[in-house]
């Protein structure tokens, strides 16, 4: 399976996650969100970029509650709660946001 991003064909797995982390570019999130009928705002990008930084440092896609806590610490309590994150990413902040960010599915997500 693959998706088209800026004229390039990028390989994804059966759940739509990028096969190669290094294939990521912002256009990946644009294409994936369009497929989900979701318009990305700065609030979305804040979380996507946060996830990419987290992965860069720890080499892991954080579980939802870890993400929630870490976002709370970095961006404040009003954003570090599941209500806020689920409103942004209705399919689940762990799964959906990680997918847009080009990360693997969070360990422990089923």
């Amino acid at each position: 399976m693959s998706i088209e991003v800026n004229g390039k064909s990028l390989e994804v797995d059966e759940e739509g996650y990028l096969a190669n982390l290094s294939d990521w570019e912002p256009g990946v999130a644009d294409v994936m969100s369009k497929d989900d009928d979701l318009e990305l705002t700065n609030d979305h990008w804040e979380i996507i970029n946060f996830l990419r930084e987290y992965y860069e440092e720890y080499q892991i896609a954080p579980a939802v509650r870890v993400l929630t806590k870490a976002v709370g610490k970095k961006l404040g309590k009003d954003k570090g709660n599941s209500k806020y994150l689920y409103e942004l990413f209705p399919y689940g902040p762990g799964k959906q946001a990680c997918r847009y960010a080009g990360l693997p599915k969070p360990t422990g997500c089923v």
């Binding site: 440092e57 720890y58 080499q59 892991i60 954080p62 579980a63 870890v66 806590k69 870490a70």
Partner: peptide
């Protein structure tokens, strides 16, 4: 192979 040593420093978050 994947260098998973960085993950140990995420354990506190878990």
């Amino acid at each position: 192979m994947k260098n998973f040593s960085a993950i140990y420093s995420a354990l506190g978050d878990y």
